[in-house]
Structures are given as structure tokens and as C-alpha cells.
Simulated scan of single mutants.
Amino acid sequence: MNKILNVALISPSKNAYSETFIQMHRKGIEGNVVYYFNGDLPTKNNLENRLASNIYKLFFRIKKIFKFTQLTILEQSLKHSFKKHKIDIVVAEYGTTAAAVYNVCFNTKIPLLPIFHGFDASINHILETHKNKYEKIFNYSKYIVVVSNKIAETLITIGCLKNKIIITPCAPQNKFFDIKPNFKKNNFLAVGRFVDKKAPYYTILSFVKVLRKYPNAKLQLIGDGPLKNVCENLINYYKVSNNIKIIGAVKSKDIDSYFENSYSFLQHSVVANNGDSEGTPVSVLEASAAGLPVVSTKHGGISDVILNNKTGFLVDEHNVELMAEKICNLIEDKLLAKKMGQEGRAFVRKNFSYQNHISTINKAIKNSL
């Protein structure tokens, strides 16, 4: 009889609205999952409000003073929690999280499975400051999970062995395959945080050009972030608030209706000035699963999951003119849009389903022991 594993799943945030894929991992990983959160080096889990009492912290501090341990107090608290819950393996969401918990895993000889998602393998200063820790992770871990071919290429460049890398984009929830898009109206949808790498302002500028030709077209943008005010100012400047609306953050359970009322998905991702890039955006996979043709950019893992001219259109980063042209193509040919949506749904169902993704994660966990 196979032993039931005790798995520590670690994420910096408890339940960020844009990180539905982490909650899907939490539900799908086989075994007893203890969910750690509140920072790269977590201070809480779903079973304990804090990992160590004040008495234990005092004990850890004394050990540190007398050099009985090289671990920090927070690391010792985490080590104590791992021991308490008899953790067999640590799954770290993001390379930066894996770097933060590496010392504890190495000290306790607990296997570590990092999952790289995007910024952790692209932002320049992160790659610089984490260089040594990443090298240690690459040596210590049997496998490294990444969500795009682009991330795999980056990690190989900085020292990870190719045969250690497992590529598996995060998957859409199964509910998206049941959505029926609305091809009767020219309604478009964009979902994503308002941050540099998602460049929502480029999506808006492209749509402004579309409105000059098709003034009845509508665009809804779902999300929140530091660029939200900039985008609202753009909408007001071009006087298109009747056509382009920012909805704000929407919970996963409430997002279905927005996909059902749209027939195409837009996202103009770019490499930010600091190097920040997408992994494989889950929202793009959700759109294809829902049967929406996607107009996006040749960026990160997007090219892995969108077949250009077959399940959507991909343009070069910053090319607002061509993005507008491709959006117009979908307005002018609804049969093409519908066919692309159907092709996209079939492609995602076959290659990027939740079942395939979580099976790959569970296999990586077992093979890491």
C-alpha cells in the first residue's frame, strides 16, 4: 500500500485573486496538503495562525546566539512546523519562494520541487540577486517545474540542467469548457492585472483605433493594479467611456458571465523595462477553453498555447496598429472568429487540461522523493 504523502505547498499570498492556479494546485495535489503562506518565507499555514509560539522563538534565539544552528529564527520556525506535520516534500510556488525556503529544506533533507511562473525567471534584479540561491536549487532539486518554454530556456541559460526541467503550463478550470460565447454582438474581453507586463494601455489604444471603424464595439477590462488610473485617464482622454469599461477585480466564481457575453479575448503582453515577463497567462488559456479567439502578442508562453492564425492572432509587442487590424478582422468575419474559438477550445482541451497539468505535478512530486 502506497504511503499517503504529507506535502507542504508554499505560496507568498494566501489567496490572491490573480493566482487561481495556486488554489487549483492546493486542491489537486495528492496527499495531505499543508498550505503555507504569508511571504516567500512563510509565517502561517492553514492549520496554524503562526508557525511558532513566543516560547519557541526564544528557544530558537538562544540556539542562534550559541551557534547551535545556522538557520534564522523564521527558518527555524518553519523547520519546526515541517517536523510537526511530518512533511515529506515541499512544493514552492515561484522560484523566489523556493530560494527563501531552500536552507530549511537542505537542513532537514526534505525534497524541494520549485514551480517557476514568470517574474521569478525574468525580472533582471531578481535574476541577479537570486543567482547563487537558484544555482543551489538547481543542484538540490531533482526536478524544476516551469510553465513555459521561454522560462525553460532562461533557466537553462543560468545553469539548470535541461533534463531536470518539466514544462507544464497552468491550466484553466474545467468550467470554462462549458461556456458558450456570444457571437451576436461585438463584445470583447480582457482579463489581467493592470501592470507593466500586461500593458493594458496598449489594449485600450488598439481598441480606440477599432472604434473609429466600428463605433458599436465594446470592451470590458477585468482586473486591478497600479496602472488602473492611467488606463482610466486614457479612456477619458479619448472619450470612449461608453465603449471601454474597467470592471475591476472579479472573483473567479463570478467571472463566467463576462466570458459568456463576449466573443473574443484581448491581451497585449510585453516585456517590462525591468525584464518582467509573463509565464503562460492562465486567462489566455481560459479564453481559449471558453471558445473565444484570442488576439495577443508573441510573448512569453502565449506562443505556446495560441496557434497564430488558427486559434487566434499574435502580433509583435507594441504593435498597436496590427492588433487593431486583427480585432477588426474578427468583427468582419464572425464565422472565422467562431472557427478560431472552436479550434482553440479543442487545442486547450487536448493539450492543456487541468487533468493533464495536475497529473504532471503529482508525478513530479512522486519522482522527486
Rank of each mutant, 00 (worst) to 15 (best):
L5N: 10
L5C: 05
L5R: 07
N6C: 11
N6K: 12
N6R: 12
V7Q: 12
V7Y: 13
A8C: 09
A8P: 08
A8S: 12
L9T: 02
L9E: 07
L9Q: 03
L9I: 03
I10F: 12
I10T: 15
S11V: 04
S11W: 04
S13L: 14
S13I: 13
S13Q: 13
S13T: 14
S13F: 15
K14H: 13
N15H: 14
N15V: 13
N15A: 15
A16R: 00
Y17R: 05
Y17E: 06
S18C: 10
S18I: 02
S18M: 05
S18V: 01
E19L: 09
E19G: 08
T20W: 02
T20P: 00
T20I: 12
T20Q: 03
F21P: 08
F21C: 02
F21L: 09
I22S: 06
I22Y: 00
I22D: 04
I22Q: 08
I22L: 09
Q23R: 15
Q23E: 14
Q23Y: 03
Q23K: 15
M24G: 01
M24T: 00
M24C: 01
M24P: 06
M24Y: 10
H25D: 14
H25A: 10
H25C: 09
R26H: 06
R26T: 07
R26Q: 05
R26S: 00
K27I: 01
G28R: 05
G28Y: 03
G28S: 10
I29Y: 07
I29F: 08
E30Q: 05
E30I: 08
E30P: 03
G31D: 08
N32W: 03
N32A: 02
N32Y: 02
V33I: 03
V33D: 04
V34G: 09
Y35D: 04
Y35G: 11
Y35C: 10
Y35K: 12
Y36N: 01
Y36A: 04
Y36M: 02
